[in-house]
Structures are given as C-alpha cells and as structure tokens.
Amino acid sequence: MGEINVAQRTVHIVDSDALHRRDLAQLIRQQGLDCHPFAASADLADALGYLPAGCVLLAWRTPQPPAQATPIAGEEEGPGPMVRAVLSQRPEMAVIVMAVSPTIPQVVQALRAGAVDFLEMPVQADALRPVLEHGFSILPARVAQQQRVGQATALTTQLTPREQEVLRGVVAGLTNRAIAERLRIGVRTVEMHRGNIMQKLQMDNLAALIRFAVFTGVLDQGLDAA
C-alpha cells in the first residue's frame, strides 16, 4: 500500500477536466497526502501566495483548435509558460506537468522550464507514487534555498544605489582604484562604501561577499550599466 510516510504533505492540482481532477485528488488522498484541486491556472495563481509549499501537478491540455484556425500556429505551444508562471511566484514548489500522450519536445520544454518531473494522463497510481516521492524528496532543499535567497535579497535592498555599484565592481574583480575611476569618485570613498557594504550584508571577508553577490544575482545586472 506504499504510503508516503510523512504527514502534512500537500499536493496542489490544476486540471480543467473535472473527472480526471476528481480521480487524481482521490488517488492523492489515498496516499495519505493533502490535496488542493483547482480547475484553472488563474485560480491557483490567486491562491499561490498563501499555499503551503508542496508538489504542484499541472495538467497541460491542448486547447481544441477552432474550426478555421491556422494549423501551424499552435505547433510550438507547450507547457513551458505554465510552469514558469508558477515558479515565478513560488520558486520552491516542485512542479510536475501532466499531459495526454506527451511528445518528447513537450516533456523537454516542461523540464527545461523548471518542472521536476512529468506524468502521463490519465495518471495511474503506480506512476504517481514514485514521481511524488521524487518531488517531496527534493522539496526541503528547495524551500531552504528559497529562504536563503529571500534573506539575502532583503539584505541587498538595504544597500544604496551607489553601494550596489561598488559591490558590482568588487565582484567583477576591479581594484578600488578602477572602481573609483569608473564611478568618478575618490578611492577613499570607495573604501568607505566597501566597509559599509560588508557591515550591512554582515560579511567579514571578501570571499563571503563575492559568494553572496553571485548567489543573489547582483552580477546579473552587469557592470556597464554603472
């Protein structure tokens, strides 16, 4: 009867097909898991802010093409945007895409968009169990990572724009002199900013500062913008 043996595990479902949604919810509850079914992505999106972290099962159903629609238009459509929409709001959720007779490109698109796994619909209990186990096994690390990013990002917002520019220079490996020249400020001022940055970010050495900056993506904003 292979239950997943931890209480309070939650699975969120989005499926427009009422019958499949009901069957799936039943399968999930039979495994001793909590289940929140939604009929549409928009309903999930409204609730995402306060839902507990868990697995999200997203049904990807090809819309019925209207009679006079151009056939090529839908070719490249796939589950990617749906996955990214959930992850942009809740990056820690373990998203699993479901589809009827999926093609390789569809599966690839879902995984590349950040889905952790895939299921064929209608979902069978045998297939569901290992996939949910996979999802829940990686969830704690994802939640922890998300918390670290949140804390780090909160710290970064305490930096002034000028301090952020200096930080980018430091991370890019520029000397204080080079940073000073770029920002047209004095070397002493750069040194002062660096001191403040270390203090605000609660760092005691340069290596830790650089790791932090890479981690929070300060680098991504580029140096040339300064």
């Binding site: 599966v107 590349r112 952790v116 796994d117 895939f118 299921l119 996979h134």
Partner: peptide, 12 residues
C-alpha cells in the same frame, strides 16, 4: 542537456 532525477525521464 539535463541533469536531474525525473522519474519520467529516466523511464524514457
């Protein structure tokens, strides 16, 4: 191409 533990992909 991919590095992860997708059960579905391992099957594929």
């Amino acid at each position: 191409a991919y590095a992860g533990a997708s059960v579905y992909l391992a099957d594929q």
